[in-house]
């Protein structure tokens, strides 16, 4: 139910992805699960092993999409937030998709894509197990702050 104000609450989807059994690769899902616990009425969080093309159907129903993924560390250990551009038309997809691909598919098929951000969390250890390394754990805390900010900023009037 929407309240009658000038601010229409924006719908948000947060999609965290990666393998839950490959160490830090699962940090995206862990973040998504933490967002579920926020219980925000306008925010849907999805934890998934990988991005799949049918997620396009969710993307076309939201105003803002935030993707959360692990990223093998370079020298810097910080969480990064990137605006996502549509993938170029020259891209190919495989068994997994990238966020920009999903957006581009949404745009191509339905003529719409939401505004989107990619939050990458530094990751060190991809060995079997569902433990997150300290780097990924710190990244998760930082990422959750970024997400809160993104959701608040982007869905505020």
């Amino acid at each position: 139910m929407k309240t009658i104000t000038n601010n229409i609450v924006k719908n948000v989807v947060a999609i965290g992805y990666g393998s839950r059994l490959c160490g830090d690769d699962g940090v995206g899902q862990a973040v998504a699960e933490a967002i579920v616990a926020w219980n925000l009425p306008n925010v849907r969080a999805i934890a998934s092993h990988q991005l799949t093309p049918e997620m396009v159907d969710i993307l076309v129903t939201v105003d803002l999409a935030i993707f959360i993924d692990a990223c093998p560390t370079d020298d810097s250990l910080s969480v990064r937030v990137y605006p996502i551009e549509l993938a170029k038309s020259g891209s190919t997809i495989g068994h997994y998709c990238e966020p920009k691909m999903l957006l581009a598919i949404a745009q191509a098929l339905y003529g719409y894509h939401p505004q989107a951000w990619l939050v990458t969390i530094p990751a060190l250890d991809f060995s079997l197990g569902d433990r997150l390394s300290c780097v990924a754990q710190n990244g998760m805390t930082e990422a959750l702050k970024e997400l809160e900010r993104l959701i608040r900023f982007d869905t505020a009037a």
Binding site: T52, P53, E54, V56, D57, A87, K88, S89, G90, S91, T92, I93, M101, A104, I105, A108, L109
Partner: peptide, 29 residues
């Protein structure tokens, strides 16, 4: 052209087929 020989090229050329593919996946899911 490899630049358009991909899903987007497919969507442009055969949008109905591409949408059908997504719906089939969804059905299985």
């Amino acid at each position: 052209d490899p630049q358009s020989r991909n899903l987007f090229g497919l969507i442009a050329a055969e949008p109905e087929l591409a949408r059908g593919g997504i719906r089939l996946r969804q059905f299985g899911q």
